[in-house]
Design a protein around this nucleic acid. Structure first.
Lengths: 231, 231
DNA sequence: GGGAACAAGATTGTCAACAATCCTGGTGCG
DNA sequence: CGCACCAGGATTGTTGACAATCTTGTTCCC
């Protein structure tokens, strides 16, 4: 049963509930469903061609993930994450991702170091080329890699759950003028600290980076709504 | 975050789903439902006098809280938390509760200091009197207080979610011979560091304490099953 | 004109029945 | 004897209808 790993590109014939969960989640992170938008069961049912029961289960599940908010007899709506909470989320990410980095630093194989440094080089190039979206993508890849290398499933789960909550802020962050200039050296420092195998340094580097992200969040929040077509 | 917070004194007339959620959660943390036990919808439906639909919703919600595990077409069972995962959970608790402590240290009012020192004194007395269960209760109160004083709703939510996952191990920890002797000074150090208003010291004290808890976990895991009637 | 009482509409929560799926035991063939 | 195969039972997933609850617009009285 443990033989075949989770295929990253599988499950086209997802049945009712699972399919709706996926579709709604995708619509939320893509910005198609805006914060505070009501999610009426009957509407979603018709839109996705699934029974109201499946939609209901899906909303229950998404509520558990913190993406939608439900109140008794009043339905579900897309959870709005105000700036103050985005800061809180990032603070928690700071310490938990710091833990992952510290653990990762003591477990690296040579192949891992290569992947990390490869990512670092790609980031440098993206910045040099002015490819903000590509950089944002690499950014996520780096953080995901740190999560994975930590080998801490619980921490990874917590981070995954938090990740969904401030997609909005995170997407805009990379587009903030001058942000990448500050972000790139921090990322490179994380990579170097990890490769050096020093857990304290790795944790400190991750914390420093996310502290800087927190400092930049207020500016992001004041920004205008973006198209986000680029997904 | 989402509701789900076990309010110690509220909602007497809980209707269908909410009532089942509460009852099942209580049964799980009380040990009435043992790990890996199957939770058949029809059985629970009859036991709690609620429609299978309500039971279903309840299981969905509890699955979101991480208390039960569900697999497609194979039903739900009480999540078993193996030692390795209990360690992981405590590691995450270590850093997140450290964050709460650091933030709390900078926000304390005099009344808070009094409450903290009062808890410390009560702990000393409980240990002197050999009241292990009372000490365990005070222990939880202290950790809850740190959570609350941090004023970090997101962190508190994460911790609340993790708390439910290793009740089993946590309950037995206090009963481990010689454990309280190591635990008490650590708790007192946390209290002093908080009262001194130094965030770094507070975080370090919390981390040190939970590191010691982690070290003690393997011994707990080997212990026999306890009655747990004391709830 | 302002606000409480009320009724209609909309939406969620629950129930019972049906279909789909999985697990368990037995059966027959090699 | 071992193993693929196949009913039978048990359990979950889904559908549709009904009851309970909330929201909104209206009316009536002060």
């Amino acid at each position: 049963m443990t033989a075949a790993g989770p295929d990253p590109a599988a499950e086209p014939p997802a049945d009712g509930t699972a399919r709706v969960v996926d579709a709604v989640r995708r619509a939320i992170v893509a910005g198609e469903f805006v914060p505070d938008q009501r999610l009426v069961e009957a509407d979603l049912s018709e839109r996705f061609g699934a029974g109201r029961s499946s939609v209901r289960s899906a909303l229950l599940q998404l509520s558990g993930e913190g993406l939608v908010e439900r109140v008794q007899h009043r339905g579900a709506r897309v959870r709005a994450v105000p700036l103050a909470e985005a800061v809180e989320v990032t603070e928690v990410r700071m310490v938990v991702e710091g833990l992952c980095a510290a653990k990762a630093a003591t477990r690296l194989a040579d192949a891992d170091r290569e992947r990390l440094r490869g990512l670092g080089a790609a980031m440098r190039e993206a910045v040099a080329a002015g490819d903000l979206l590509g950089y944002s993508e690499l950014n996520q890849r780096l953080h995901a890699l740190v999560r994975a290398l930590g080998g801490q499933a619980t921490a990874a789960g917590v981070l995954e759950r938090l990740r969904g909550q401030n997609v909005r802020h995170r997407f805009r962050l990379a587009l903030l003028p001058g942000r990448v200039a500050a972000s790139l050296p921090e990322h490179l420092e994380i990579i170097e600290a990890l490769c050096s195998g020093d857990p304290r340094a790795a944790e400190a580097a991750v914390r420093g980076h996310l502290r800087s992200v927190i400092a930049a969040l207020p500016a992001v929040d004041r920004g205008p709504d973006l198209p986000l077509d680029s997904l």
